[in-house]
Computed example of a mutant assay.
Amino acid sequence: MKVLFIGLSNNDKVRGVEQYCINIVKFLAKNQDLQIDLLCGQWQRNYYDQLAAANVNILCAPCGRSKLKRHFFLIKSVKQLSNSYDLVHYCNTLPVFRKNAVPTVITIHDIAEYKIRQKYTLIQRLYRKLVTKLSSSIADKIITVSNFSKDEIVNALHIAPDKIKVIYNGINHLPFQFNYNTKVDFNNKKYILYFGVLEQTKGIPELIKAYEQIADQIIDYNLIFIGKKGNEFEFLQQHLSDKINYLGFLDYDDLYAHLHYASCMVFASKYEGFGFPILEAFIFNDNIITSNTNSLGEIGKDFAICINPESVDELSDAILQTIKFPKSFKTEEKAVILNKYRWENAAYLTYQSYRELIKNL
């Protein structure tokens, strides 16, 4: 089976979608039945070239990096390109405005454009809705990364549930150990931790209010934020103090050390398609607080305290509970939970979806 895998994006550094592409393709390529060509931008070669060692053929799209140029190329060229393949798989919500010559799969990680108004400008939101609506209706199969996202797609886009396959992402690309020789002395440090991009909808105002609400009961604990500056950074900046700290963006060893030594990690986001942050935290820390209203509750139900992200009272109570009665998972218990999220499994289920689709069309 010859597959055209479309990994074309704007990013010259690996982010969530690119991590998905690298790992799915790497493990798919181990299947002797598959020959994979990966279509990307020239600016992406610095991270996709590693797949050549897995016998993946890297193709560079003859287009510019801007969204206009990338999307115009895909709309104009993929149908013709698809004549040379048995199946086309788009790695993300990309424009599929006409049927390809062969079966088409698209992975939709979330539909934030329908749910989070403040994440995009009006023009961006309208265009993304158009792309999502058309692509999901034209594609022959949709893969998504959680049951929560599947329900969102079904309800918002009116897609038949049996057209959508839920395949969890893997996390075994992450380092499961870190260098304890960090620059930070963690002796006697007590803190509650948030890490991730500082964006609206991530529950940052509620976390600060929850901390301030119980500050007199946990006077020895600081609240620490780690991550890239986003559209909620200005709000955070207004609340920084000797007890509420922002450490910026840290390298892996320092980040994982901070995760490991935190009294608890809080990620009460209001909308997520998948739960990478809580799984990443759970590798190093047993005490996670997260949302119960989106995919984080689905992913975290086996190990986290799940609360309503809109409720400051629930969040403050969960922080107090975690500090007073911390959880402790046995190594084998943690391994069973994390083993559900392996790229080998995701690639196998993706391959099965290819086979079923080709067989049924």
Rank of each mutant, 00 (worst) to 15 (best):
P326H: 05
I319W: 08
K327F: 10
Q321N: 14
L320E: 06
T322W: 02
S291R: 06
E298Y: 08
V312M: 09
E314W: 09
S311L: 02
F325S: 14
N287E: 06
K327L: 09
S291I: 06
S311I: 04
E310Q: 14
F284S: 09
A318C: 07
P309D: 02
T293F: 00
K330D: 12
L315S: 04
D302S: 14
E298G: 11
T293M: 03
D313K: 15
S295T: 01
V312I: 15
S295P: 06
C306K: 04
F329Q: 02
T322G: 01
F329T: 02
P326T: 02
I288N: 02
N308I: 01
I307R: 10
D302E: 14
C306I: 01
I307P: 10
D317Q: 15
V312H: 06
I283S: 11
S295N: 00
K301V: 13
N308D: 15
P326C: 03
K327R: 13
N287A: 06
S328P: 05
D286Y: 11
S291Y: 00
T322M: 11
P326K: 07
L296F: 10
P326N: 08
K324H: 13
N285D: 12
I323T: 03
E298V: 01
N285A: 08
T322F: 04
E314H: 09
N294V: 05
L315D: 01
Q321W: 05
N285C: 08
Q321A: 15
L296R: 04
E310D: 15
N294G: 05
G300Y: 04
G297E: 04
E314G: 08
F303W: 07
K330P: 10
I299F: 15
